[in-house]
Structure formats: C-alpha cells, structure tokens
Design a protein around this nucleic acid. Structure first.
Length: 335
DNA sequence: GAGACGTGGTC
DNA sequence: TGACCAAGTCT
C-alpha cells in the first residue's frame, strides 16, 4: 500500500497544476455533455488522434448540446465520427443523449449511478465524467492509470485479468482524494501519457518517483497474451454506372449504418479487372483488399446505388474511403 | 469471460 | 513488415 496516500495525491495534483497540459479543449469546460463527448472519443484512442482532424471541436459545433445530438440523423452522427473507429461509440453517444432527454428531462444526470447507466458509459467513463465535469471524488482506471499503478505497486499480475482489474480499481479508489480529485485524476492519466510511458519511461523526472516500488518499469504492466494476427483476402467491387456507385450498408448491429464497397466471393470476381489492391488492419486481422472494376453489377440485399456526388457525405470506414480514392485517382491518370 | 470492435502511430 | 499500443464497452 502507498504509505502516505494524501501526500502522494497532493504531489500528483500539484504536479498537474503546474506541468499538466491545460490547452486541451476538454480541459477548458465543465459541461458534462462536452466532457462525455471527449471521454467517449478518447476511449482506446490517443489524444493526438482526437485532436488531429478536429473531431472534438467539429462535433461540438455540429451537436452543441444533448438536445441537438438526440435529434440528429444517425447518418450525420456516424459521418462526424468517420475515421475515429469503434463506431458503436458514436451511436451510443446519441443514445445517451436521447436517454438524457427522455429519462432526465434533458438535464444531464449528476449521480455516478445515473451516469453509468447511460449507453456506452462504463466504469471508467462514468468516473471521468463525474470527476472532470462534476468534481466528484470518483476513481478512474484507464490504460494510463493501470500502467502507473502497476508500476507504483510493482504489480506482477496481468492488469487485464478479472482479478488484476479488481485490484487496480481498489488502489484507485483508495488513492483518489476527497478534494481536488480533478487535478489528481488528470495528473495520474497525464503522468502515464507523458512520463510513465509504455516504453522508455522518464523515471528521472517523475514527480512521484519516491513512492514507486518497481525496479524494472519497462517490464510492467503484465498483460495477457494477444491474439495472433490472421491474414485474409477481401474482394470488393467498384461498380459505377450512370454516375452512381453500388455500396453495401452494414446490417450487423456493431457496424450498422456504415457504407462500404460490396463484397463478393473469389469465384464471383473471377475475370474482372483489378482496379486497386491495398492492405489494412482491423483488430487482429490483416486484410488484403482487392477492388475490381465492374459494369452492370446487380444490387443485392442491403446494397444500394448512390450518386457519386453524395459519396463524400456518407459514413464509411477508413479503408474503403482510402480504396475509393486510390481507384478514382488511377482513373484520372488514365481516362 | 473471452471475443469483437477501428484506426493511426511508433519502433 | 509486423507487433504493440491507445482517455474501454458491450455481448
């Protein structure tokens, strides 16, 4: 156990006040809705990615409050999320907004239990919203905090196992201070992000190195074995006719609402000219995507013709967006 | 409780 | 190139 938790918490909070990044857009607001948006965007996603194409500020410009988001079209919502991945986050965010309208009279809930009950809000996000927006002394454990705590406590069990997760949340709960939890929790995360990094941690400048009990930080945290990468081929169509392109709308719940190039079996594309070939990764798959040019394709279930002008406004996973660009560029080069 | 879910960056 | 990683949640 950390001997003097209060001094530890104060040291970290103080470090954040002086050294923490204050320029991040979600650190200039206490609006629970805006904080929720940032936390959901940042789930399994790095800060630079969210900042890169202005996802956060664009989102708040388009959906400035819960009511606007709740009333938006799902396709618009997904379009604003395009390129961020894990698209169920966007759908759940809209469902959460609708839940606030329907179940809380449009007023964002202020208890951890009610926040936790919103769609797409797990233990981490609930704690983060309650702490960063409402100032409550709620614990949080994300990948950064897990790594920092595992090293501080020289924790040699997998941090992604049930018992490991339980232990980390206990530590986090014990350490969060009653006052100034905002700066403490922010400091804990930012420490993991900037100093207590996965590789080559800068222990020399760590503000809480005096509390750290591990001697090989680069070996922690321990994680369960990863799934092996599986290679597979994907054959898709670039079917254009009379200014329209054939696209497939994902019917499955997880990817619902996103448009992609229609897929065909290797038998069905036999003999068609290859228009583009590229690789992309998705979770543990490494996919080689082949795109074939075809005229006179027939739309199947969940497939529809879209005007080429409307293409840009449709929500589409990044690999297909990139594939389309590649194909169309090659057509421009040799008309 | 394991597996699914995206993407872009780093080494 | 490929493996690893990231402000996790849901089923």
């Amino acid at each position: 156990m950390l001997e003097d938790r209060e001094r530890f918490s104060q040291t970290l909070a103080s470090w954040f006040k002086h050294e923490g990044r204050q320029d991040l857009p979600w650190r200039t607001t206490r609006d629970p809705y805006a904080i929720l948006v940032s936390e959901v965007m940042l789930q399994q996603t790095q800060v630079v990615t969210v900042l890169s194409r202005g996802y956060y500020t664009n989102w708040l410009e388009k959906f400035p409050d819960v009511a606007t988001l709740a009333a938006a079209k799902e396709e618009e919502v997904l379009k604003m999320w395009e390129g961020l991945g894990y698209y169920s986050r966007a759908r759940n965010l809209q469902k959460a907004a609708q839940a606030v309208i329907e179940n809380h009279d449009g007023i964002f809930p202020t208890s951890p239990e009610e926040v936790r009950a919103l769609p797409g809000v797990g233990r981490y996000t609930a704690g983060a919203v309650c702490c960063f927006a409402l100032g409550l002394p709620e614990p949080i454990v994300d990948a950064n905090v897990a790594r920092v705590l595992a090293r501080l406590m020289d924790f040699h069990q997998p941090v992604d196992s049930t018992s490991g997760i339980k232990q980390l949340w206990e530590w986090a709960t014990e350490c969060v201070p009653e006052t100034d939890s905002y700066h403490y929790n922010s400091g804990l995360m930012e420490l993991g992000q900037r100093i207590c990094k996965p590789k080559a941690p800068d222990c020399g400048i760590c503000p809480v190195k005096n509390w750290c009990t591990c001697d090989s930080p680069e070996k922690l945290p321990i994680k369960k074995e990863r799934r092996k990468t599986i290679h597979r081929d994907e054959h898709s169509l670039y079917a254009v006719s009379e200014g329209k392109i054939l696209l497939h709308r994902e019917p499955e719940r997880r990817r619902q609402g996103l448009w992609r190039l229609p897929e065909r079996t290797s038998n069905e594309i036999a003999g068609l000219p290859l228009a583009a070939k590229m690789k992309y990764s998705i979770t543990h798959y490494r996919v080689t995507l082949h795109v074939y040019e075809i005229t006179g394709a027939k739309a199947r279930e969940d497939e529809a013709w879209h005007s080429l002008e409307s293409l840009a406004s449709l929500p589409m996973p990044s690999p297909y967006r990139r594939a389309l660009e590649t194909v169309q560029e090659s057509f421009l080069l040799q008309p």
